[in-house]
Amino acid sequence: MLVYLLRRLGQSLFVVAAMAVLVFVGVYAIGNPIDIMISPDADQAEMEAAIARLGLDKPLWEQFFIFVGNALQGDLGKSFVYSTDAVSIILAKLPATMELAMLALVFAVFIGVPLGMIAGLRPHSLAGKSIMAGSILGFSLPNFWQGMMLILLFAVLLKWLPSGGRGETAELFGIPFSFLTLDGLSHMLLPAINLALFKTSLVIRLARAGTREAALQDYVKFARAKGLSSQRIVLVHIAKNIMIPVVTILGLELGSMIAFAVVTESVFAWPGMGKLLIDSINLLDRPVVVAYLMLTVFMFIIINFIVDMLYCVLDPRVRLSEAKA
């Protein structure tokens, strides 16, 4: 097990290093922040002072090594715009995105898995066909359009739910969260559904395919030959088998859900990391963009690691062979 963990750690370090180069060079290539940040009528001396203050006078490689040196000490740079630590700006927005993504994940699993299993068990029934048709819509309609339709229907026409913002928040461990208050929850509902729609469609397809495959397996027939009730066969024998692909994919998707909640956050004016990223790109606030991308890389690595661990818990075959490797 230890060897396995060490090997994973090594791989992760390599990914982080490679990403650091890519991200830094990539972001450096877009625009010139000076044009935006310094008023056009500033004189040459002011301009040069600003450039030196931001460290932009040094060659790219030197900037990169300063960046790496600072990064190793946990400092991913200072925002050009706010003149504060980029990481803390992002982390301040993290809880809002996190709770949104988590709620969306819960929706995706608790709606997607049962619907997918129904569609898999009764593929030719009306219910099965409607579920699949719905999942095709969830896949193919653009995310922002779905979001606007949700607002139109539930916020504008029916006036059931608010259309934007975080609503009232309450503190947990000193961090403000929306899901702790009723008002906050009502604000979360629409963006979470919007964020979940695509993933739910994905989970439906995974669960359906898994169920159809498992239902034909001999072990299901043997379970029936043992006289088990169909509930037990579906909820234990089949469900446990389809959870392996569902957990794997969803874990990976959770990363993308957090990292790229950009569209949903923009549509619903949800003050999370995605909105921050869009704002920072518009302002060419390079350190924030770089820090955001680096944090995203970290997050993906950690989530992948957790998924692998979960996978081991779910699939006994992996547990033993991988542990030995």
Binding site: Y219, A225, K226, G227, K240, N241, L314, D315, P316
Partner: peptide
């Protein structure tokens, strides 16, 4: 109620009859 209690069956392929995750 009869399956597995009064009438039991053993299948052809032992590699497939046990659920791999239980």
């Amino acid at each position: 109620k009869l399956r597995g209690s009064k009438i039991a069956m053993i299948f052809q392929d032992p590699m497939m009859t046990l659920n791999p995750v239980l």
